[in-house]
Design a protein around this nucleic acid. Structure first.
Lengths: 281, 281
DNA sequence: CGTGCCAGGTGCCAT
DNA sequence: ATGGCACTTGGCACG
């Protein structure tokens, strides 16, 4: 049933085991009393910890939550970030961001307490394990650079190199022009010398985006005494966005992300992976 | 150095091991060729998989990204959701939501490929492991109910039970009144019979919240021919929010989340955990 | 530190 | 499916 190169070891009752390798330690069915030491040592040495077992959770901070007993995966990273994952879904059910300080101990009944505390705002995450099936401690080395394509920043770069994609004869004057409390994505002048403010969205534009653009237009008008054109650039527009655009006398321009991506691919000589596993027709 | 109840086993060269328990299997330094079978079997049986090792990642979908070799933690959950975590931070560096379909194989050079593909929108996540230190497969049982306190929904419930916290003599008429494209949090009438629209924020209110409220007020006016009062209720207000409130002739009301939480505690007989680990003064 | 704003935002619920 | 919006949003940049 299992690949033949795997050996299977049946462990019928709780036991404790450490497999020691270069930088990975594994405890199977550990005595919970040993884990506070494991966790503290890991944190001191910059190691990450994974604990799999049955726990209950309380959180209190900006909000508050409670979760009864269940089997979950806990990850404590080197920087103090904590994640608790249930068996389903993308999001952790509870977590603590990286600035948290971790305390851990066991009580008389052998339960393992893990407390992740963060200040400003004060938030407390309390995890109590009644049973641990597996604990792993590891030092991860990961120095690779993460490269993101098609972010709003990259789209803006493409549009600023090719302003005719927004409007013919548009001349870019300024990137991230400060206006009022925020900053306009792109500022320039059109073929008739009229100032143009461009707000760019890489996702379908909602009414919020229109208000954002409107705020820049109003700030510009208040500052320079001249009403600029305002153009919302996005791959699509919600009905409420279009209604608001018309009401506030603003313009909009569709962009085709695929087209922009082809442009980026051409410039960067990158190969698409989107066809992986696609059904052959 | 380690707690004395732990046994340490030194593994000097790659080997393959399975620890079999009720519902948890562990492979240490597995031959990568065995892992596609492990993963496929896990998915079929509704088990989650954790793989720790060195991998590179490509993603393409709504955006696109690339990440070179590094040591990471991969989680594949029962529902097809995939998370890849680097050694630092709260967020996974790459992921795939729960609807993804997972394919996995190895190539001639023994590298492990894991492809998570999602449709609508089509997104492809490709993970290639060149080395795996640990693989875990487990069936997690977690039926507990997650209870969230102090969400906006709970705050609204408290305010609707105690409308005087918003304004004396306020009478609530409607919850989530549909107005235009969105819906106002609370709708009622004040002591003088004038309609009141309340927009509630559980976080510091920004200018966006003011525009949101303004949209509801305008929609109400357009629909009923009468300008209602608009009250923004929040724990604090940004300067730009206050400026916008005054410009648009809207009102605002501070709420004290702690006070509301005490109310909720009193009703729910819950005990705060915020004092855990706080320094004694 | 707060303020503003993007994010492959995610999640929930509505039509 | 799309729209509207809250979220312990997280994350970054900037003053």
């Amino acid at each position: 049933m299992w690949p033949e190169r795997c050996r299977a070891i049946l462990v019928s009752k709780p036991s404790v085991m450490v497999i020691y390798m270069a930088d990975l330690l594994v405890w199977e069915k550990p005595d919970l009393n040993t884990l506070p030491g494991v966790i503290k040592k890991a944190i001191v040495e910059g190691r990450a910890v994974i604990i799999i077992g049955e726990c209950s959770i309380e959180y209190e901070g900006r909000s508050a939550s409670r979760l009864g007993n269940g089997e979950r995966i806990l990850i404590i990273k080197q920087d103090g970030s904590v994640l608790v994952h249930r068996p389903h879904g993308y999001s952790p059910v509870n977590w603590q961001p990286e600035t948290s300080v971790i305390e851990t101990w066991t009580d008389d009944e052998g339960r393992l307490y893990i407390l992740a505390v963060r200040e400003g705002p004060r938030e407390v995450l309390s995890i109590v394990f009644s049973r641990v099936d597996l604990a792993v401690s590891m030092k991860l080395s990961d120095k690779a650079e993460f490269i993101m394509y098609l972010s709003e920043a990259e789209i803006k770069r493409i549009l600023m190199d090719n302003p005719e994609l927004v409007e013919p004869n548009l001349r870019i004057l300024e990137d991230e022009k400060k206006l009022g409390s925020g900053q306009a994505d792109i500022y320039g002048v059109d073929g008739n010398g009229r100032p143009v403010i461009v707000e760019l969205k890489r996702i379908p534009a909602s009414r919020e985006a229109v208000f954002q653009l409107y705020g820049y237009v109003k700030s510009y008008e208040a500052k320079y005494g001249r009403r600029p054109r305002g153009i919302l650039v996005a791959p699509s527009f919600s009905p409420s966005a279009i209604e608001a655009l018309q009401r506030l006398q603003l313009e909009y321009k569709l962009i085709d992300l695929r087209e922009l991506y082809r442009l980026a691919l051409k410039k960067g000589y990158r190969k698409s992976i989107l066809d992986y596993g696609r059904k052959q027709v």
